[in-house]
Design a protein around this nucleic acid. Sequence first.
DNA 1: TTCTGTTATACGTGAAAAGCGTATAAGCGG
DNA 2: CCGCTTATACGCTTTTCACGTATAACAGAA
Lengths: 96, 96
Amino acid sequence: MAKAKNKMVEGARQALAIARGGKVKGFRVHEPKDLDVRAIRAATKLSQAQFASRFGFSVRTLQEWEQRREVATGAARALLRVIAHDPAAVERALVS
Amino acid sequence: MAKAKNKMVEGARQALAIARGGKVKGFRVHEPKDLDVRAIRAATKLSQAQFASRFGFSVRTLQEWEQRREVATGAARALLRVIAHDPAAVERALVS
DNA sequence: TTCTGTTATACGTGAAAAGCGTATAAGCGG
DNA sequence: CCGCTTATACGCTTTTCACGTATAACAGAA
């Protein structure tokens, strides 16, 4: 039950974070936490190893994300969304 | 939102065209570790708070990077490079 | 001028989580 | 059988980030 409690606390903490971020003036980017990393990679038809090395992280980390054992950090989620939305832009930036 | 997902998958599918049309398989992206995060942010003319919330991380983390107290992870570095190279593309991906 | 309310930036502390190397193993097409 | 892809365990290193405090630079009010 210590576990359940931690979960609740964590949930509350996140809600707080969202509430805070939501009121930043101007534009706050809405970030869905339920990113389907596997689907994004699948669309690229790259293997885990290829996808990982191409975009700058380890295979191990990618697996953690795909298998939902760990959640990608904010920046990583943002990157994944850009890859999903416009992979060409990412390729261009990283190749140059 | 199944729609949103399809959109992302569709977008990612473009990677294919590039991956195949361009170089051969498995080219690796080189990543300079000495990223000048402050300069990248300066180019966007955003405050630390704005920059951080817009791209998905905390102000504190951004400061760690700018002051070189900590190094951004691979995915974060990749994101920063994309922001430096084509910030509009990132905005587009995150706003949708 | 002086007080006062932003706004931007710096940083100590510490818990939680992510990042990731290495090793091992199973499934599969060739 | 071999090589490639993916899954998983173990475990150590590093980052992330909340919370709090502190310091300037400014702008407008008193």
